[in-house]
């Protein structure tokens, strides 16, 4: 056998091997691409099904307090001509700040029949309570208190006993004890223990988002958002001025 023939055979073998390798690469590329697309589609479907499960879960469990107004999202306090809307999360420190600084003024304007306050409890800070979902539980408890005719009393008690952001929040037992201090009884306790209004809190929060709000507190006077400079919390003076301008 000549040397040339051997070289030719070696060359041919190399070309065949190269083609085999190229084939393999093509096949691997094709199937891994298919796999990647499949994985992403499946991930999307999992997300979608989780979402629709939660939606139907909320819808199935939804109990709207009979006293709730404004698409069932708010509790009305006062009879004055100027409408004030307060979207608050009971775990939100800035909401508490507003209650401390301006709560007394709000109460006074209510008692002078100048404003009607629509309190909208929302639960956007559930992640800040170590998985106990304090925002939802406290909003649900507030709805139960409203059903028992003690919304504003319980609302104020919740802010006076606000747990730190990032803590477990108050336990259900503590929420019930707090209810007792403002005169709420067994029906309230059952509603808290059975999470009767938790789905309602989720729904109210969705309505809040759908209206284009995404932070608490969101304060509206006569339908207009009231803020301090640079989108900060309005001072009592800024708030009162907005009420005066609105005609109270």
């Amino acid at each position: 056998m000549s040397k040339t023939a051997a070289r030719q055979r070696a060359n041919a073998r190399r070309i065949v091997e190269q083609q085999k390798a190229a084939d393999r690469r093509r096949r691997v590329t094709l199937w891994t691409t298919v796999a990647v697309v499949l994985v992403l589609v499946i991930a999307g479907l999992v997300g979608w099904s989780q979402f629709s499960n939660q939606q139907s879960d909320t819808a199935a469990k939804l109990v709207t307090p009979s006293v709730a107004v404004d698409q069932g999202t708010a509790f009305k306090v006062g009879t004055g001509p100027v409408q004030v809307d307060l979207y608050e999360d009971f775990q939100c420190p800035i909401c508490n700040e507003f209650e401390h600084s301006t709560g007394a003024t709000v109460a006074q304007l209510v008692s002078q029949h100048k404003i009607t306050v629509f309190y909208h409890p929302v639960s956007i800070l559930d992640r800040e309570s170590n998985g106990t979902e304090y925002s939802t539980r406290s909003a649900g408890a507030a709805a139960a208190a409203a059903e028992g005719g003690k919304f504003i009393e319980y609302h104020n008690a919740l802010y006076q006993n606000q747990p730190a952001e990032g803590s477990d929040g108050l336990t259900n037992a503590q929420l019930i004890d707090l209810g007792k201090t403002v005169g709420l009884g067994t029906a309230f306790a059952n509603a808290v223990n059975n999470k009767t209004y938790d789905a309602w809190a989720a729904k109210a929060t969705d309505t809040f988002s759908a209206r284009g709000y995404n932070g608490t507190p969101t304060i509206l006077v006569a339908g207009k958002v009231v803020q301090g400079p640079n989108q900060t919390l309005p001072t009592t003076a800024v708030f009162t001025q907005a009420v005066t301008q609105a005609g109270a």
Partner: peptide, 16 residues
């Protein structure tokens, strides 16, 4: 809200 529900799962999938 649909995008928001799907997004974390897709992110995890890309990560994996």
């Amino acid at each position: 809200r649909v995008i928001g529900a799907i997004q974390p799962f897709v992110e995890i999938a890309i990560g994996l």
